[in-house]
Amino acid sequence: MTDRLPPPWTVHHNGDAYWVEAANGQKFAFVYYRETPLVGTERDARVSRDLARRIAANVAKLPELLTRK
């Protein structure tokens, strides 16, 4: 995995999503969010902005966590 997606992984934000980017510029792990809650019977898979940021930040920590002993 680290051959294709070399660390460090960094989190980026643009518009309505956070994403994780590897050191080689490969973007992956897009997490979309919604600013305003849905009303009525509307359904959406997007999460809150804070939760999206936390998910992306935790994904970016994976290479470090996997190399710990």
Rank of each mutant, 00 (worst) to 15 (best):
A17L: 05
P63F: 10
V31G: 00
D16I: 04
R49E: 15
Y33F: 15
T10R: 12
N14M: 06
R46S: 13
D3Y: 04
P7S: 11
V59A: 10
D44Q: 06
V59I: 15
R43E: 12
A45F: 13
E21Q: 15
A60D: 09
V20G: 00
D16P: 01
A45L: 08
R43M: 07
T36C: 01
S48M: 05
F28W: 15
T36V: 08
E21P: 01
A45P: 09
T36K: 12
W19H: 14
A57F: 00
T67S: 14
R4V: 05
L65D: 04
V11H: 02
A52F: 09
D44E: 06
R54E: 15
G25Q: 11
P8L: 01
E64M: 03
Q26G: 01
L38G: 04
V59S: 05
N14Y: 09
I55H: 08
D44G: 14
I55Q: 12
D44I: 10
R49S: 04
L62A: 14
W19L: 07
R49Q: 14
L51E: 15
P63E: 04
R4T: 07
L65M: 10
R54T: 15
T36L: 08
F28Q: 11
A23T: 08
G25W: 13
F30E: 14
E21H: 04
R34V: 02
A45H: 12
T2I: 10
V11S: 03
V31W: 00
R49I: 07
A23N: 14
I55P: 00
F28V: 08
V47G: 04
E64P: 00
N14H: 12
F30Q: 09
R46Y: 02
Y18G: 01
N24Y: 05
R53Q: 15
R46E: 06
G40C: 14
A56I: 09
L5C: 01
W9F: 05
H13D: 02
R4D: 07
A56C: 12
P6D: 05
D44F: 12
R34A: 10
K61W: 04
V31L: 03
G15L: 05
L51Y: 15
Y33V: 01
K61P: 00
D50C: 01
G40F: 13
L62D: 03
F28N: 13
L62H: 05
A57W: 00
P7D: 06
R46G: 02
R34M: 08
T41L: 10
P6S: 04
P63R: 11
L65S: 04
T36Y: 11
H12I: 00
K27P: 02
V31Q: 07
F30Y: 15
T10P: 00
W19C: 02
S48K: 12
A56T: 10
A22P: 01
A23G: 06
E64Y: 06
R4M: 06
A45D: 10
P7W: 01
L65V: 05
V11L: 08
R46V: 03
V20A: 06
P37G: 04
R68V: 12
A52H: 12
G15C: 02
N24W: 11
F28G: 10
P37I: 02
L66W: 11
V47W: 09
T36H: 12
H13K: 11
P7V: 03
D50K: 14
R46D: 03
A23P: 05
I55L: 15
V20K: 02
R34F: 01
L66Y: 09
Q26N: 07
A60N: 08
P37C: 02
I55W: 07
L65T: 00
R54H: 14
D50N: 08
P37M: 02
Q26F: 11
